Amino acid sequence: MSGPNKDYDPVEVTPLKADEVERMRDEALAAVSGASDLEALKRVRLEHAGDRSPLALANREIGALPPQARKEAGQRVGQARGVIGQAIAERQAALEVEHEERMLAEETVDVSLPTTRRRRGSRHPLTLQSELIADLFVAMGYEIAEGPVVEAEWLNFDALNLGPDHPARTMQDTFWTEPADHHVVLRTQTSPVQARAMLTRNPPIYVVCPGRVFRTDEYDATHSPMFHQVEGLVVDEGITMAHLKGTLDHFASQLFGDGIDTRFRPSYFPFTEPSAEVDVRCFVCRGSGAGEGGDSCRTCRGEGWIEWGGCGVVNPRVLVSCGVDPDVYSGFAFGMGIDRSFMFRHNLEDLRPLFEGDVRFAAAFGSEI
Rank of each mutant, 00 (worst) to 15 (best):
M1T: 09
P15F: 09
K17D: 02
E27Y: 01
A31S: 07
V32F: 03
L38P: 01
A40L: 05
L46H: 04
H48A: 05
P54C: 12
L55Y: 03
G63F: 00
A64Y: 01
A64M: 06
G74Q: 01
Q86G: 11
D110R: 12
L113C: 07
E131Q: 15
E131I: 13
A134H: 00
D135G: 10
V138W: 00
V149N: 10
E151R: 00
L162N: 03
R169T: 02
H182V: 13
H183P: 02
Q189F: 03
V193T: 15
R196W: 02
L199S: 04
I205A: 02
F214E: 00
M226C: 12
H228Q: 15
H228M: 15
V235K: 03
G238K: 01
A242N: 08
L244W: 01
T247K: 03
D249F: 13
H250D: 04
A252T: 04
S253C: 05
Q254M: 14
L255K: 05
G257S: 08
D258T: 09
I260C: 08
I260P: 06
F264T: 09
R265P: 13
P266N: 06
F269T: 05
F271V: 09
E277V: 06
R281Y: 02
F283K: 15
V284R: 10
R286S: 09
G287L: 11
G287H: 09
G293M: 03
G294A: 03
D295W: 03
G304D: 02
I306C: 13
V324F: 11
P326V: 14
L354P: 02
D358V: 14
R360I: 09
A362I: 14
S367W: 01
